[in-house]
Design a protein around this nucleic acid. Structure first.
Lengths: 189, 189
DNA sequence: CAATTTTCTTAAACTTGTTTAAGAAAATAC
DNA sequence: GTATTTTCTTAAACAAGTTTAAGAAAATTG
């Protein structure tokens, strides 16, 4: 169950077998069903989640009532609302399973002790966050550089197969347009 | 010269006086004039820069020749292309001083040794990157939730005075629209 | 301070994507 | 396996923001 995460960590830092055992002492696992929530707006986020299998999304509700997806997390991605987590304040976001998902997570209550016990994990998360940050900037770049249609085709090429896993309205909002417009794009082909 | 950075670090971790002295051994400072570049597209990024005074921006050139600003860094912000830095590959971005700026920076050549000498700095950068990542996600949220005009007014309220420090075409591209449209917005008042 | 370059403004025609509303197709629940 | 809910499609009128082009105002340079 922990193996996907351990494999991911090994790409960034070296932990010996005893350290990996210590790490597992601070982790929890969970299987969450489709459409179940890990976090609802107004709640305090109390863990960082690693997707071992499945898919999560982070979204919020706009004034007009529609849901705006701001991120997906597929296999080997971490997801959390780090602002809410770090400051223990209510989140503006929701986190939901797009499909049944297997998660490994660090409860907020265990986080500080984990970093004390295994300082190398600070580096791991520094590098994970560096990547996530750069991915977010790249996304901003795409939003400003390409039209909605171009972003859709690019997404489809970058994550072939993934488009089939999620409802189109979620993808449309992630790409920054309406489901109606996505239908229009698809009708062209 | 190092004081603004040391003050910033003290918000996140504790370093004693001797550790702060060690830290300074890995840092460099520079004063850079308006419009000078720290990085041009195609070059490998070779440092992370902390703005002690002044303002930097990160941008790239779109196909149509216009410059798209993706980030500003004002006092107490770090800026780098972490992808280019970490992988030592050519950057897609440019980094430029918007006004004369005083910088403290970590040369890539010193980075690994700094983290070995002061592991607490791993935590500092983990937290700095966490914030930067969340700021980028919040920005994506704003882009999708508000119209250009709303984003302009919101930016003006969030950073009063800053709007006066930068050319309008830079702000327009940061906010995701043309300078002509910004003129239109301003004409309304 | 005169000359040059950079930045800002205005306006009309145009493009991209939204809104509204209705029906069709899939998926899920009972 | 029928009923219900969820998701997807179509189309027309509309809104937000772009493009093009020209001139005006500021800032910078010599």
């Amino acid at each position: 169950m922990y193996e996907p995460l351990l494999r991911h960590i090994r790409n960034y830092i070296r932990l010996d077998a005893s350290e990996e055992a210590v790490l597992q002492g601070y982790l929890q696992t969970a299987v969450i069903g489709k459409k179940e929530h890990l976090l609802k707006e107004g709640q305090v986020c109390n863990a960082s989640y690693f997707v071992a299998e499945g898919c999560l999304r982070q979204y919020y509700r706009k004034d007009n009532g529609t849901e705006q997806t701001i991120q997906f997390a597929i296999e080997n991605w971490w997801m959390s609302d780090y602002i809410s987590l770090e400051q223990q304040k209510p989140s503006a976001f929701c986190m939901q399973a797009v499909e049944q998902s297997t998660l490994v997570y660090i409860p907020y209550s265990a986080q500080a002790a984990l970093f004390e016990a295994l300082p190398a994990m600070e580096r791991y998360f520094r590098l994970v966050l560096q990547r996530a940050y750069m991915a977010a900037l790249t996304r901003i770049q795409y939003i400003f550089t390409f039209t909605g249609e171009e972003r859709y085709h690019h997404f489809q090429q970058s994550f072939p197969g993934f488009v089939q896993r999620i409802p189109q309205y979620m993808l449309a909002s992630y790409l920054g347009f309406t489901p109606e417009f996505l239908s229009k794009i698809r009708a062209k082909r």
